[in-house]
């Protein structure tokens, strides 16, 4: 059913810290590695080792420069499905392939029902959906639904692959519908924001903006360079000798 559940029991999602993300793309490759064998497998690649590789990915990291005050700051920006509360990608789906789970709010695609019309990709402002031209169906982030409930994994590993991979702890996973959860507390504490809130999709995932700079730029000029003109002493003599035209 592509009608949305009135209320979901949980709102599972990610909190992404733009202050600590270093743009290493470990979440990108880890996502690809897990999901090409997971719920939406395969994540087809075309010409992967050639000159024009193309393929299906659920998570990407952009790198931006934001001008702010003196100079600018580099911001690494991971972009994946935000598992919105009111996702138009679900309601536009003509077949019922796209759905939002009433239990945990995860937005999924039933690949066996998808006709590949791609209207959901048009309806998503966040670019979360990627079309698999080999299989002819739309694919997207599953929030690693096959990890987070997977009792074959150690409990510590029951988080999305991108969260498990992040070396700086910039990605947090939890229930954003529960105001007392660790992720909700983090969002409240750091002033987490929605992306494009005015479009009305009500994304579950939140982004933590970079922290304000704590100190003014230091005024520490570099040491003056050594003189390149010939001086006295032994080195001056060597310099003069080596500079002779005859040599």
């Amino acid at each position: 059913m592509t009608s949305l559940p009135g209320k979901t029991e949980k709102s599972l999602g990610l909190v992404i810290d733009l202050d600590t993300c270093v743009g290493c793309h470990a979440c990108v490759t880890s996502c690809k590695e897990w999901n090409t064998g997971g719920h939406m497998a395969p994540l087809t690649d075309f010409d992967p080792y050639g000159g024009a590789p193309d393929g299906t990915w659920f998570n990407r990291v952009h790198t931006y420069e934001q001008s702010c005050g003196e100079g600018g700051r580099t911001v690494n920006f991971p972009r994946s499905c935000l598992h919105c509360e009111t996702p138009a990608c679900v309601t536009v789906c003509p077949t019922g392939a796209s759905y939002k789970r009433s239990s945990d709010g995860i937005v999924l695609v039933d690949e066996d029902k998808c006709i590949g019309c791609q209207l959901c990709a048009w309806a998503c402002p966040y670019g979360a959906r990627d079309f698999d031209f080999d299989v002819g169906v739309m694919k997207k982030c599953t929030l690693c639904v096959d990890r987070i409930y997977n009792e074959n994994l150690d409990e510590v590993d029951r988080v999305p692959a991108c969260v498990a991979a992040c070396p700086t702890g910039a990605r947090h996973f939890g229930d954003l519908g529960d105001p007392n959860s660790a992720v909700s507390q983090l969002v409240a504490e750091r002033g987490g924001v929605d992306l494009m809130p005015d479009l009305g999709y009500n994304p579950v995932n939140k982004y933590l903006p970079p922290r304000a700079k704590t100190s003014a730029p230091t005024d520490a000029p570099a040491k003056e360079l050594e003189s390149v003109t010939a001086e006295g002493g032994f080195l001056g003599w060597v310099d003069r000798m080596l500079s002779e035209e005859a040599l």
């Binding site: 733009l18 793309h25 990108v28 024009a52 590789p53 193309d54 299906t56 990915w57 990407r60 990291v61 952009h62 790198t63 931006y64 420069e65 934001q66 001008s67 702010c68 600018g72 580099t74 911001v75 920006f77 972009r79 990709a121 402002p125 990627d130 079309f131 924001v193 929605d194 992306l195 494009m196 809130p197 005015d198 982004y207 903006p209 970079p210």
Partner: peptide, 22 residues
């Protein structure tokens, strides 16, 4: 709005991938 970065100008330093994607 798209990046959640309030204020200032946003400029791409690097795309996430070398080739055009879907």
């Amino acid at each position: 709005d798209a990046t959640g970065l309030a204020g200032g100008r946003i400029r791409t330093v690097e795309w996430p991938h070398t080739e055009a994607n879907y």
